[in-house]
Design a protein around this nucleic acid. Structure first.
Length: 305
DNA sequence: CGCACACGGCGTCAGGATCA
DNA sequence: TGATCCTGACGCCGTGTGCG
């Protein structure tokens, strides 16, 4: 886990932050991921936010892990069960593209840019803000307490232009169990807002000014070390060797299933959080619509003495 | 303090879905 | 068609909480 200190002043050109992950992977954060205070943000602001994974800076196996992760996401998105969840989340968002049943290789996105259907359009953060993801990847962060229609004009963050090779587009945001804000990105990584800056490891630069700090976490655990590939069956002779081979296979299968179960539970929790966030957002929208309806009723049918 | 209960996480198994 | 993956179900364990 590595803390990302927000750099730059937040004005002018977006700041660029290079972050070294414990695995040696370098993460390139362009722009400032900032949580606006309700009293500060008065007018729409445009910021460019990119969380880019620079594969070129890592020639080791970690870069292959990122590609594998993206590949796995693509593969998972073609699975009916996974597709069903994502389509459900995007069902009432007409602007959100659904995952198609089958796509030809030419139509698919290049593997270095992980793009999949954004599950849903609106999320609520721990601070009560709403994060709306529109078609094209535009991210809107709004303050529910602000005046205006639906309160959706407080802050706009957008992925502008084509991401560089190896870039990872912020996928969606949700609220974590510990109350921190999370921006989920493909590849099973999350960008989490720090609650306290002292949580930052000593090898990282301290947070600058009043800029909130963020951490990039990899929720999935790596496979345990020491996995020995089984010898080819043809090289086995004695029953003891066969038994050892069977034991190895079983251990390997159990280990993989362990990891799969963890990942499955993590996805399920993530999905439930998304649903809960959506419920909260829809309740607020419903309340606003009811109020708007009452207002229109009053306008259309003024009291007569 | 001890006990019962609820809750969440984990490991494992089984079976369906998918891939090569 | 076998291998692999995903996920529901089950049991176990640790932790928190309320109660006597």
């Amino acid at each position: 886990m590595v803390s990302v200190a927000g750099s730059g002043t937040g004005r002018g050109s977006p700041a660029v932050t290079l972050v070294q992950l414990p695995s040696g992977q370098t993460v390139h954060v362009r722009g400032v991921i900032q949580t606006p205070q309700p009293s500060v943000i008065q007018s729409p602001q445009i910021q460019t936010v990119q969380v880019a994974t620079i594969a070129e800076t890592d020639e080791s196996a970690e870069s292959e892990d990122v590609i594998d992760s993206h590949k796995r996401r693509e593969i998972l998105s073609r699975r009916p069960s996974y597709r069903k969840i994502l389509n459900e989340l995007s069902s009432d968002g007409p602007g959100v593209p659904k995952i198609e049943e089958e796509k030809s290789e030419e139509e698919r996105t290049p593997p270095h840019i992980a793009t999949m259907a954004v599950p849903t359009s609106i999320y609520q953060t721990s601070t009560g803000q709403y994060i709306a993801i529109a078609q094209g990847g535009t991210i809107q962060i709004s303050n529910p307490g602000s005046d205006g229609v639906q309160g959706l004009q407080a802050l706009t963050m957008t992925n502008s232009g084509a991401p560089p090779p190896g870039a990872t587009i912020v996928q969606y945001a949700a609220q974590s169990a510990d109350g921190t804000q999370q921006f989920f990105v493909p590849g099973s990584q999350v960008v989490v807002q720090d609650e306290e800056t002292e949580l930052a490891p000593s090898h990282m630069a301290a947070a600058t000014g009043d800029m909130p700090t963020y951490q990039i976490r990899a929720p999935t655990t790596a496979l345990p070390q020491g996995v020995v590939m089984a010898a080819s069956p043809g090289s086995l002779h004695s029953p003891q060797q066969l038994a050892e081979e069977a034991t190895r296979k079983r251990e390997l299968r159990l280990m993989k299933n362990r990891e799969a179960a963890k990942e499955c539970r993590r996805r399920k929790k993530e999905y439930v959080k998304c649903l809960e966030s959506r419920v909260a957002v829809l309740e607020v929208q419903n309340k606003k619509l009811i109020e708007e309806l009452e207002t229109l009723k009053d306008i259309c049918s003024p009291k007569t003495d």
